Amino acid sequence: MKRTHLPLNALRVLDAAARHLSFTRAADELAVTPAAVGQQIRALEETLGVVLFRRTAKGLELTPEGGAGLEALRRGFLEFEEAVRAMQAGQTSKTLTIAAPRDFTAKWLAARLAAYGRTDPELRFKLVAADEGLDFTEANLDLAVCLASSKGEHEGIEIGGSDYVTVAAPESGIEQPIGWPGSPDAEAEPLLFVADAGLAIDAAAAGFGRATVPAILAEADLASGRVIEEARVPGDKTYWLVAPVPQWRQKKVKALVAALSS
């Protein structure tokens, strides 16, 4: 069945004007001008084919036609508000579903989520590997991490900068690079090729050679002395926290982004 087009803005104006019996007070409630209220009422009268208000010596008066549907109209607005609250219920959830590359999760994200989780015992996290593209709808994601040159089509914030560092085990005597998908090293046949930058750092720490990786991934291993920094160069990609606008505007996502980017 085809639904009738409802002039919702005009109906909201009718409700306010009927309660106040004043276009001026209705305008104050709705944060518009009295002229705008009058225009909405006239347009609604033309649409419905009825007169809704009359001006009398005592002031504005609601016609029988105007009052006939008010009770149902106000019930409808209450139903709309209930529907909106139902749709927003997910924002009160303390569960966050995050997609991130495996090496980023292992080397940087997991420790920070653990620290953030300690601030609120109700927080829960679901981590999804994001090594092959992002689909926010299919995976019901709240937030994702990607290594890219820009945030792309989503809302986002850059974290960690774009520098790459070359790391090796302390006193390592092996000069050959360790390869991984996306490695900036041009060596065609490295001594060792691994699945990601996190494993490249681990291989370097084990003495297999030198790994050039995003600097943010090597922070903890450098700080612990597990590897040492031998060189640093600018890269053309950085890690981004991204999400479509509806997810990005959720309170729980905003709080998480603030915690991870501080």
Rank of each mutant, 00 (worst) to 15 (best):
L109F: 10
E81Y: 14
A169E: 14
S162R: 09
D135E: 06
T119M: 05
L109Y: 09
L109V: 10
E81F: 14
D142C: 09
S149G: 14
D120M: 13
K126V: 15
E71D: 15
A68P: 02
V84F: 12
E171G: 03
T95A: 15
P170D: 13
G90I: 11
E171M: 02
E122T: 14
D103H: 07
L192T: 12
D196P: 03
K126Y: 01
N140H: 14
K151T: 09
A106F: 01
A72G: 14
G117V: 09
D185Y: 03
S172F: 01
A106H: 02
V84R: 15
T119H: 03
E61Y: 07
F125Q: 08
A72E: 15
G69S: 11
A195H: 08
L60P: 11
P170M: 12
T105W: 02
L78C: 04
A197L: 06
G133T: 08
E122W: 06
V194G: 04
P181F: 03
R74T: 11
E132L: 07
D185R: 04
S150M: 00
A72C: 08
A89L: 14
C146D: 07
R75E: 15
L143V: 07
V84H: 12
F77T: 12
P184K: 04
V194N: 02
P64N: 10
P121E: 13
E155P: 00
L73D: 13
S162H: 08
Y116C: 04
K126T: 14
S149I: 00
L127P: 06
S172M: 08
G69W: 10
E155H: 08
F193W: 09
R112P: 09
G160S: 05
T137S: 14
I178T: 05
P184E: 08
E171D: 03
E132G: 04
V145H: 00
G67D: 02
L147C: 06
A197C: 10
A168Y: 00
S149W: 00
A110L: 06
L192G: 11
E153G: 11
A72H: 12
L113D: 06
I159N: 02
Q91H: 12
R74C: 10
D120V: 12
D135P: 03
S172L: 09
L127N: 04
L113Q: 06
D142G: 10
R112H: 13
G173Q: 12
E132R: 10
T63A: 10
A188I: 13
T92G: 11
R112C: 07
Q91G: 14
A106R: 01
E132V: 12
S150G: 11
P181D: 08
E158P: 02
A139I: 06
D135K: 02
A106K: 00
T105M: 06
L134T: 05
S150N: 10
F77P: 07
V194Y: 01
E171N: 06
L62P: 14
E65Q: 15
E171I: 00
A106Y: 00
G179E: 08
L127E: 07
A129E: 11
E81L: 15
S183C: 14
L192F: 11
A129Q: 08
E122V: 05
P184A: 09
E65A: 15
T166R: 01
E61T: 13
V84T: 12
S93C: 11
L109C: 13
A195M: 09
A144M: 06
D120G: 13
T119E: 13
L191Q: 02
T105V: 15
R118Y: 04
E153V: 08
E122G: 09
L73G: 13
G152H: 01
A197N: 07
V165I: 07
